[in-house]
Simulated scan of single mutants.
Amino acid sequence: MSGSTQGIGYAVAEALLAEGASVVVNGRSEHGVATAVRRLEDAVPGAAVSGIAADFADAAQVRRLLASLGEVDVLVNNVGVFDVRPFEEIPDDEWQRYFDVNVMSGVRLSRHALPGMLARGWGRVVFVSSESGVSVPADMTHYGTTKAALLGLANGLAKLTRGTDVTVNTVLGGPTYSDGVARAVEHVARAQGVPVDEAKGAIAAANRTSLVQRFLEPAEIAPLVAYLASPVSSATNGAALRADGGTLTTTL
Rank of each mutant, 00 (worst) to 15 (best):
N102M: 05
A199V: 04
E14S: 10
V37S: 02
N207L: 15
P137H: 01
N237V: 15
D73P: 12
A148H: 07
R85H: 04
A67L: 04
T145K: 05
L75V: 11
A43K: 08
V62N: 10
R190E: 15
V185S: 04
D83G: 13
V188G: 00
R28F: 13
A13Y: 03
I221F: 01
P137A: 04
Y10N: 06
G238M: 11
R111P: 03
T146G: 02
A57W: 04
A206Q: 12
N102C: 05
A158D: 09
G27S: 10
T250M: 14
R64S: 10
A18C: 12
V168G: 09
E131L: 10
A43V: 07
T141D: 00
V79P: 11
A148Q: 04
S2F: 08
V171S: 02
L228F: 12
G51S: 15
N237I: 15
S105N: 08
F99D: 03
G7Y: 05
L114C: 07
V79M: 10
V33P: 10
D55E: 11
V181G: 02
S110F: 12
S50F: 04
V225D: 06
A119H: 12
M104L: 15
E94F: 01
H31G: 08
S233P: 05
V212R: 00
E131A: 07
E94C: 00
I90M: 01
A15E: 14
P137V: 01
E220M: 00
G152H: 09
V81M: 09
S230Y: 13
A34W: 02
V81R: 10
T141C: 12
N78I: 12
N155V: 09
S29F: 09
A243T: 01
A36H: 09
P115Q: 05
S129M: 01
D179C: 00
D165I: 01
A199M: 07
A119T: 07
P223F: 01
A191E: 15
A206Y: 05
S29N: 13
